[in-house]
Computed example of a mutant assay.
Amino acid sequence: MLEKISYLILLIIILAWIIAIILGFIMAFPVGIIGLLVILAMGLLFIKVLKDKFTSKGEEEKYKDIKW
């Protein structure tokens, strides 16, 4: 129970931090657009990696028997 509460508090802090960063980029309008585009690109790449990870279960099964 305490672990879930801790994760919830951390999630709220992370979301507040991200919102503050985005608002800061918007306030620094001409230069801040570059930062927003970087965050957007990193987010899209992160989503692609997660999507590839969840859809590639067959690859993990193929190499399961190999001893490294």
Rank of each mutant, 00 (worst) to 15 (best):
A20Y: 12
W17V: 13
G24V: 02
E59L: 14
V38E: 04
A28W: 12
S56L: 06
T55N: 11
I22Y: 01
M42W: 09
G24K: 00
M27S: 07
W17Y: 13
I47D: 05
L37Y: 11
K62H: 10
G35L: 06
K48C: 11
I18V: 15
L15E: 05
Y63C: 01
G43V: 08
L15Y: 12
L36E: 03
V38T: 11
K53I: 06
Y63A: 05
I26F: 09
W17C: 07
G35D: 04
I14L: 13
V31I: 15
G58T: 09
I34E: 03
I39M: 13
L37T: 03
L40Y: 09
G24I: 01
P30D: 12
V31P: 02
V49A: 12
L45W: 03
I39L: 15
I21P: 06
I47L: 11
P30E: 07
K53P: 00
Y63H: 12
G43F: 10
L40T: 14
L44C: 07
I39H: 05
S56A: 15
D65R: 09
E61N: 11
I47V: 14
K64P: 00
I21R: 13
M27I: 14
A16C: 03
I33S: 04
I13N: 03
A28N: 13
F25S: 09
A20L: 13
L23W: 04
A16K: 06
I33G: 03
I26H: 02
G24C: 01
I21L: 15
K51M: 07
F54R: 15
V38R: 02
I66R: 12
L36K: 03
F46S: 11
Y63N: 13
L23K: 09
E61W: 05
P30F: 06
I66C: 08
I14N: 04
T55G: 06
I26K: 04
V31E: 12
I47R: 00
M27V: 07
I13C: 05
L50F: 10
I66L: 13
I21Q: 10
I34H: 08
P30M: 04
E59M: 13
V49K: 07
I21F: 05
S56D: 14
I26D: 05
E61H: 04
I18H: 04
I18G: 00
T55R: 08
K48M: 14
F46W: 07
K51G: 08
F46H: 09
V49F: 10
K64I: 07
G58R: 12
I39K: 01
A20M: 12
A28H: 10
I14E: 13
P30Y: 05
K51E: 10
G32F: 00
Y63V: 14
K57F: 11
V38D: 04
A20Q: 10
P30G: 07
L36C: 05
I26M: 04
A28S: 15
A28D: 15
A20H: 07
I22E: 04
F29R: 00
G35P: 10
I18P: 01
F25T: 02
I13Q: 10
L36W: 03
F46I: 02
V31C: 05
L44T: 09
V49N: 01
L45T: 08
I19C: 03
Y63L: 12
V31D: 08
A28I: 08
M42E: 06
L45R: 04
K62L: 14
I33F: 10
W17G: 03
P30S: 10
I22S: 02
D52Y: 08
K48V: 15
D52Q: 12
K53Y: 14
M27R: 15
L37Q: 08
M27C: 10
G43P: 02
